[in-house]
């Protein structure tokens, strides 16, 4: 894949700033994308381009269970989120909708806002082309890998159901 530009944020980026509740009454991906990150970075939605990368610190996506949060980031065009750690519901939601996330404290710390970063999802390799640094993200357990391969939890369940029939 091509390298994307990094939008970097701090620790505890919560779901209320990823997508404020005032926009949850219109849950279409395109509508959510317009307001993504609005309360911490009003410029994000206007600047982000397909393939760009969101980087956060510890506990990214904490707060509400709203799946609208990873949906909004995915629909904004970002290819993935790299963070030191993820709040657990955000982690599940991203996997369940087939949106790639990478847990890597070293990368989350070293990568700077505006860097050009390339990600090899299969290998979990993160390359900061601006600095030349390469990072290895935590590998997904095999079971979660299967959900991601199928494009999300429901396609996975559907495929499994068909397998049984």
């Amino acid at each position: 894949m091509k390298a994307g530009t990094v939008f970097k944020y701090g620790d505890n980026v919560d779901t209320d700033v990823i997508i404020p509740a005032r926009y949850l009454n219109a849950p279409s991906p395109a509508e959510l994308a317009k307001h993504c990150m609005e309360d911490i970075d009003p410029a994000y939605a206007g600047k982000v381009k397909p393939g760009d990368v969101v980087v956060g610190g510890w506990n990214f996506g904490c707060g509400s269970s709203r799946e609208h949060a990873p949906m909004a980031i995915q629909a904004s065009g970002a290819s993935c989120v790299i963070a030191a750690s993820f709040a657990r519901i955000f982690y599940r939601n991203a996997i369940n909708i087939g949106f790639p996330i990478l847990e890597c404290p070293e990368a989350a710390q070293a990568i700077q806002n505006g860097d050009k970063v390339r990600v090899d999802f299969a290998a979990g390799l993160i390359t900061d082309e601006t600095t030349g640094a390469v990072f290895q993200a935590t590998a997904f357990p095999e079971f979660i890998g299967r959900i991601i391969e199928n494009g999300g939890l429901l396609p996975y369940l559907k495929a499994r159901q068909k397998g049984k029939e």
């Binding site: 269970s65 799946e67 519901i89 599940r92 939601n93 369940n96 939890l153 429901l154 369940l157």
Partner: peptide
């Protein structure tokens, strides 16, 4: 429950946890 505060029912000695909408859909199916 597709609401993060589903963990409330732990007060009754149940295992309960918040999930997202896709998890809810999977659970319903």
């Amino acid at each position: 429950g597709a609401d993060s505060h589903t963990c409330t029912y732990g007060a009754l000695g149940a295992f309960s946890t918040g999930v997202g909408s896709t998890d809810m859909a999977a659970g319903m199916a």
